[in-house]
């Protein structure tokens, strides 16, 4: 049962990190409105493969909006025109037959292109490695119920922890800033009792690494929140700022 949508795709293609890229036009036919956006790209790729041509490289994995692998700026919008979903959760019923769709990779200095629509998001890894954790070794921890956490705090922490690390915030931000990503992790631990001992050390280390990786700074346009598939709030950025000032004022570490 195939569908009835015919579409024109303008896709960014780039052979590798150093190659010059450009848009290539493809036509896809008989797309079902119930298919997902990535299934539509699968169909394109299968056609290309059948012809012995290089399929369009794009990243994807879980296809249920949680792994954070899929990306794509679709008609200028990270993860497409709908709010609060990832590209893999976008269905073709939200497009019209005959539409022309522009598909671009995330664009940021800190996310260099690897091939076609795939970018390198290792900079996010580096930020987490710099401090996005609670330093606890396996074993030797108290009983889980020994740490009481209010429902409010756990809701706040879970809201922040829902970040999937896809990078849409960076892609959407006119400054390619990673503040929403960083603030989500900082806030999660800032509201939990387990996160307190390292609270100020963590925020300084993560911000320092974020700056090193070449992300821009936040100018409070809040495009990140609008495009975040998990609706992570910019209030987390406020929390990050607050913690950063406090860290600078209170912590006696003059090296940070």
């Amino acid at each position: 049962m195939s569908g009835n949508m015919n579409l024109t795709l303008k896709i960014w293609r780039q052979a590798n990190a150093n190659a010059v890229g450009g848009f290539v036009t493809f036509n896809v036919k008989n797309i079902s409105p119930d298919s997902s956006f990535l299934e539509m790209l699968d169909i394109l790729n299968e056609e290309l493969e059948a012809k012995g041509e290089d399929p369009v490289a794009f990243e994807h994995d879980c296809r249920e909006g949680i792994c954070g692998a899929c990306s794509l700026v679709i008609n200028g919008r990270p993860h497409g025109p709908l709010a609060r979903i990832t590209t893999c959760q976008l269905h073709m019923r939200h497009f019209k037959d005959g539409d022309t769709i522009w598909i671009e990779p995330w664009r940021a200095k800190a996310f260099p292109i690897i091939k076609d629509l795939i970018v390198d998001r290792t900079s996010f890894e580096k930020i987490i490695q710099a401090g996005g954790f609670i330093s606890v070794d396996t074993g030797g921890v108290p009983d889980a119920n020994a740490i009481l956490i209010s429902k409010d705090a756990i809701e706040k922490a879970t809201d922040a922890a829902a970040c999937i690390g896809c990078g849409a915030c960076v892609a959407a931000c006119k400054n390619a800033s990673a503040m929403l990503f960083v603030s989500a992790k900082v806030s999660q631990f800032a509201v939990l009792p387990q996160g307190q001992p390292e609270r100020y050390q963590r925020v300084q280390a993560m911000v320092k690494k974020m700056d090193e990786m070449g992300f821009g700074s936040c100018t409070n346009t809040y495009a990140c929140e609008a495009e975040c598939p998990k609706g992570i709030s910019v209030r987390n950025i406020a929390q990050l700022n607050r913690d950063y000032f406090n860290a600078k004022l209170k912590s006696e570490n003059v090296e940070a």
Binding site: V136, V141, P142, A144, I154, Q188, F189, Q194
Partner: peptide, 11 residues
């Protein structure tokens, strides 16, 4: 469960 709570997993 103890380990995960200590890591900040928001159960």
């Amino acid at each position: 469960i103890d380990q995960c709570v200590a890591q900040g997993v928001p159960f």
